[in-house]
Design a protein around this nucleic acid. Structure first.
Length: 406
RNA sequence: GGAGGGGUGGGUGAGCGGCUAAUACCAACAGACUGUAAAUCUGUCGCCUGAAACGGCUACGCAGGUUCGAAUCCUGCCCCCUCCA
C-alpha cells in the first residue's frame, strides 16, 4: 500500500467502520504483526517501567515504544548496536518504535521552564497558572537542531535530524519517527508557525537520512491548536514519502480541542498509511480518536499513574492509597483478567503502596496496561460491525471523568 | 555519691527573649500526572468558628518567678541519658 520500498513492512486495512472513519488494520513488521487500532506501552529507556517482557506479552502488548534521546545519552547507540539492536538488547522481540527525541525538545525546554504538559490545563481566558515547579530549560533550539544540556551529567549535546535518524538506525526499531519540535500549548500562532516550518525542513532531512534504510519512517504533523497550521502541516507531510504519520505537538487546552485537531488533520492524510496519535491517551481519549481515524497510540499515563497509585476501573480512576480501601477485599475490578486482579485485593495493594513496597508499582502497572489494552481490543472488535458508538456509550455511562473545571 | 547533658506538636528533631502555632524530615490525609529528568510532584496537617483568616482558645516535662513580652532567662520539683567512683 505504501510507496515505500521496504518489503518487510506493510500496512493493510482489514475492515472499516460503516459509520465513522475508524478502521481495523494490520501493521506487519520484521518482528511481528500489530493489529490496529493499537495502544503502544511506553518504554522510554528500553523498559516499560517495572515490567518484564513476559509480563508485557501477558498483558497484551503488541508493540512498545522507546526513546532516542534517552537511549542516546545512555547507554549510547553504539552500545545498543553492538549488542544486536534494541530487540536483542532489551529482550523484547516484538515490534518496536522509537520516538525521535522531538518530545524532549519540549519536555526539557518549554515544558520544564513553564511547568506545562502537552495538553495545558489552562482554560480560555486564563493565563497560565504560575507553574508549581518551574526549572531552567535544558535545551535551546536553533534552525538546524537543538542543543541539550544532558540532564544526567550536564554535558552539552547536539541533536538534529541527521543525528536522530542515525541514532534510531543504530537502535534498530521497526518504526522510527522524524525529528520534530513538539510545541507548547502556550505558544503563539507566530511561534508555532515558525516551529512548524522548521519541523517540515527537518522532516525532509530525516527522509534523506533514512533513504535506503529498511526501517519505516513516520512523518510528524505539527501546528499546535491552530487550524491553518494543522491543515497545512497535514497536507505537506502527506506529500512526502513517509511510511506513516504521527500527529504530535500541543493538542490544545482540552480533550475537545484534541478531537478538533484530529478533525482538521486526519482527512488530509492518505488512507493507506498508519496514523499514530503521539502521547495519547487515557481510556476516555481512545474512542474519539479512533472514530476520527487514528490507528496507533502511545501514552505514559497508564504506567505512570500506576506507579503513582492510581488505577483504571470501568467506573473511572481509583486512588489506591485512599484509606477507605484499607479493608476492601475486592480486586481492583471483579471482571478484569489481569494477574493483579486475579490474585490480589485492593486492601493488599493499598498496603503495598502505603508501605512503599516495590511490588505495588508492578502490580498496578500490570493492571493499568491490561485495562487499556483490553479496552482497545474491544474497540477493535467493535469497529467492523459498526458497534463502536454503542461501546462508547456503554463505556461513558460508567466511566467517571475527573471533575472538569469548565 | 561526684561531674555533665537533656526533656519541643503523632515520631525524629531545629529554635534558645518579640518576626513562633513554632524550621526541617517522617508519618497521616487529599490532589495532580497524556510522544516519562517522574517509585514523582503539589496541598493540608494543635483545637474551635469559618469559604478563608493578620478571629478565638490551648500549647514547647510540672509549679512558680523575672520581663511590656518567655519554648527561649531565674528558682524549685519530677523524669531521662552519659562519664567518674
Amino acid at each position: 500500500m505504501s510507496a515505500s520500498a521496504k518489503p518487510d513492512n506493510s500496512f493493510e486495512i482489514v475492515a472499516r467502520a460503516p459509520n465513522s472513519p475508524a478502521r481495523v488494520g494490520r501493521l506487519t513488521t520484521p518482528h511481528g504483526v500489530v493489529d490496529t487500532p493499537a495502544f503502544i506501552p511506553v518504554g522510554t529507556l528500553g523498559s516499560v517501567k517495572t515490567l518484564t517482557t513476559d509480563e508485557l506479552r501477558e498483558v497484551g502488548a503488541q508493540i512498545i515504544l522507546a526513546n532516542t534521546y534517552h537511549l542516546w545519552l545512555r547507554p549510547g547507540p553504539e552500545v545498543v548496536r553492538e549488542l544486536g539492536g534494541l530487540h536483542r538488547f532489551t529482550g523484547w522481540d516484538g515490534p518496536m518504535l522509537t520516538d525521535s527525541g522531538g518530545f524532549q525538545v519540549f519536555s526539557l525546554g518549554f515544558g520544564l521552564e513553564h511547568g506545562v504538559g502537552k495538553i495545558a490545563s489552562v482554560f480560555p481566558g486564563e493565563e497560565a497558572r504560575p507553574p508549581a515547579k518551574a526549572h531552567k530549560k535544558l535545551c535551546v533550539i536553533d534552525e538546524d537542531g537543538v542543543w541539550f544540556n544532558s540532564h544526567i551529567d550536564g554535558r552539552r549535546l547536539r541533536l538534529d535530524p541527521e543525528i536522530s535518524i542515525a541514532v534510531q538506525q543504530a537502535l534498530g526499531a521497526d518504526i522510527i519517527l522524524a525529528f520534530d519540535e513538539c510545541t507548547s500549548p502556550l505558544s503563539s500562532f507566530e511561534y508555532t508557525k515558525k516551529a512548524l516550518e522548521r519541523t517540515h525542513r527537518w522532516a525532509e532531512t530525516c527522509l534523506r537520512a533514512n533513504e535506503g534504510g529498511n526501517q519505516w519512517l513516520f512523518g510528524i504533523v505539527q501546528g499546535g491548536e491552530y487550524q491553518d497550521l494543522r491543515v497545512a502541516s497535514a497536507c505537506w507531510i502527506d506529500q512526502q514519502p513517509f511510511d506513516g504519520y504521527a500527529i504530535g505537538g500541543s493538542l490544545g487546552r482540552s480533550k475537545d480541542d484534541m478531537l478538533r485537531v484530529l478533525e482538521w488533520t486526519v482527512p488530509h492524510l492518505q488512507e493507506g498509511r498508519p496514523r499514530h496519535l503521539l502521547g495519547i491517551g487515557e481510556p476516555e481519549d481512545l474512542f474519539g480518536a479512533i472514530e476520527r481515524g487514528i490507528d496507533l497510540f502511545d501514552c505514559v499515563a497508564p504506567t505512570r499513574l500506576a506507579r503513582h497509585g492510581t488505577v483504571y476501573t470501568a467506573d473511572g480512576k481509583l486512588h489506591l492509597r485512599r484509606r477507605e480501601l484499607q479493608r476492601d477485599g475486592r480486586p481492583i475490578e471483579d471482571d478484569c483478567d489481569c494477574y493483579t486482579c486475579r490474585r490480589h485485593s485492593r486492601a493488599y495493594l493499598r498496603h503495598l503502596f502505603v508501605s512503599h513496597e516495590l511490588l505495588a508499582l508492578r502490580l498496578a502497572s500490570i493492571h493499568n496496561l491490561r485495562f487499556i489494552l483490553r479496552l482497545v481490543e474491544q474497540v477493535r472488535a467493535a469497529i467492523p460491525g459498526g458497534e463502536l458508538p454503542a461501546l462508547r456509550e456503554q463505556f461513558f455511562s460508567r466511566y467517571q471523568l475527573a471533575k472538569r473545571r469548565d
